[in-house]
Design a binder for these strands. Structure first.
Lengths: 350, 350
DNA sequence: CTGAAAGCGCTTACAG
DNA sequence: CTGAAAGCGCTTACAG
């Protein structure tokens, strides 16, 4: 019962001043205190079940040891593993992550950001996909002083305009995996259901597709159809448009699994068999795509690693000395791997 | 540039004391201040872009206006909508939610709880499925004083032992929807792939199944097989065992969609067609189950509403006066709806 | 209606 | 190595 014990309670019990308790209990300053005093303080602290009030500490030190992360849609299974990666990285430096959801809504995004800043987060991890907002985050000139009060920012799953650090999948490498696979299978009429051009990922994948298809001599105009969003329904619409325009495709490379699922559903509706008539490839390897009919070939992205890396970069920006061997904590594009399942085959199989 | 403005800055600019600024800016005390003074303070505050430091306020008021929520597995698509519901409810009372993930791991769970308590959360929302932990949360006697320092607790998606408030799906009603559907279709040999008995949800659904099957005169021993966890692989194992034991089943009611997906995969492996040979029903209506082959019949649970309700109960416990019309903010079991898709049909169809 | 004072629970120069 | 003092940014009785 009663209120939880404070440092003053510990000090009283150990017969020392609160300043000594503070020093004794903090790993970074404990060496300043005589060992037997430390022992006495630790004992008193444990006897009382004392717990440091991190908010009070934050008020004093001007560091909350908290990082905010804004996610466009927690419901999208892509993000949870990323979040866990971030948490794992921050954990090592005793930092806490506060995640907020924006539902891909600009108004909610502003409010979420306000909330985080008001909570005195030390830094911001941005995973919102829509471009052109980072300027606001860091001030629209090079001088710093943006809307977020000069908070360190790292971008996750998207790139920014300037020198804002980011961690993304290696879209170029991922698409090259897909194209090598499809080309190797003998496909020559390949379509691309692209993500929105106003997302860095949608753009990068479409560019990579065009580049590789051109290099292989299989690019044709009209073979790319841009979906309005990374979701099933837009995937259906884009796939339908694509098929109407280029009916003789033998393979479709979708910019992500949700789009691929949309494609799958219209292909089935039109009586086209996958993979016998049309091969289909997704991107992300989200949960359950291996239980679709047919199980989907896709590119697995190291989501957890992306999060972990982003977390590390943030800690680096925060100048927290986590005792890791000075790795290259810079922006990164992490490579994926191709997971071959039954949605792809040689066009000869038809 | 420079540090963000404080209340002292606003006070200086408005020519008043910080205490007046505090009163003027707080909706609950603004009436104590002369209107034109309020206006002057607000003006100064806006000119400066002043933002209240909520941590400092929390230190002073002993309330962080923060609630912690522990989730067993954020990767499980069941939870994100629940989380959003909670956020929506808390938002109305200007509270922030901090979500932590435990990976269903007891050690991580303890650490997460510590983190939340250390962050001075005002209350705890527990969505971990394993039973028998709430006592620790509230003290193992009726006197309060548990490991979490008497924090208000509300259970989400699980029930507790004592009088701890909870919000769950109405499992009995949900299963009755399923059984009415199956029975109405003419099935008489129905199996149940149950969730773990040590989860309140697994138990409630199995009990409901047995009760209704018995009432309909179609219950037989061996017709229930308990999976070791709510996941695909355990679902496969349980379904295989069930089919080995009772080969002539015409329908399977699974305790959730993941288990149903496991069932689907072994049924296919064994050359049994769904629904021609065996009808299959899931629970939860998680994303993508409508894209399985065949699309799965399942029970849709109002996840968002569950979260919202849980959030409301918490606010109530916190005695925050959110201006809602005194609804019945007690524990609730929210009813689901049956979503009929192609995984179920009359057994006569075979 | 407003100000001066005290204090929430810490940390950190500054003396000793 | 340790203590006394000040202060982080707020709120709230207590006087006036």
């Amino acid at each position: 019962m009663g209120k939880p014990p404070t440092m003053a309670d510990v000090a009283r019990r150990a017969g020392v001043d609160t300043s000594t308790v503070s020093r004794a209990l903090n790993p970074r300053t404990a060496w300043k205190v005589r060992p037997d005093t430390v022992a006495r303080v630790v004992k008193a602290s444990e006897d009382l079940g004392y717990r440091l009030n991190v908010l009070a500490r934050g008020l004093r030190t001007q560091r909350s040891r908290t990082v905010g992360m804004v996610i466009p849609d927690l419901t999208n299974p892509f993000f949870p593993p990323v979040v866990r990666g971030v948490e794992a990285a921050l954990d090592e430096a005793d930092h806490t992550l506060i995640v907020v959801n924006t539902d891909d809504d600009v108004a909610r995004e502003e409010r979420s950001l306000r909330t985080l800043v008001d909570r005195q987060v030390d830094g911001l991890l941005l995973a919102t996909t829509h471009l052109g907002k980072v300027h606001n985050a860091q001030g629209n000139d090079g001088s710093g002083g943006g809307a977020f009060g000069d908070l360190p920012v790292v971008l996750v799953n998207r790139r920014g305009d300037g020198d804002v650090p980011f961690v993304t999948p290696d879209d170029h490498q991922g698409i090259s995996l897909v194209m090598d696979h499809l080309l190797g299978l003998g496909h020559e009429r390949i379509g691309h259901v692209a993500g929105p051009r106003d997302t860095s990922t949608g753009r990068a994948r479409a560019d990579a597709f065009e580049e590789m298809a051109t290099a292989a001599g299989v690019f044709a105009s009209g073979v790319i159809e841009e979906a309005t969003a990374f979701a099933v329904e837009p995937g259906r619409a884009a796939c339908a448009a694509l098929l109407d325009r280029v009916p003789d495709l033998t393979a479709i490379c979708a910019a992500n699994d949700l789009l691929a699922i949309g494609c799958l559903s219209v292909l089935k509706e039109r009586g086209l068999r996958v993979p016998e008539d049309v091969s289909l490839v997704g991107f992300n390897d989200m949960p359950l795509v291996d239980f679709l009919e047919p199980p989907m070939t896709t590119v697995r992205v190291p989501q957890y690693d992306m999060g972990f890396r982003a977390g590390q970069i943030m800690l680096d920006l925060l100048e927290v000395d986590v005792d890791s061997e000075a790795e290259p904590l810079t922006s990164a594009e992490l490579p994926g791997t191709l997971v071959t399942r039954r949605s792809t085959s040689s066009p000869a199989a038809s």
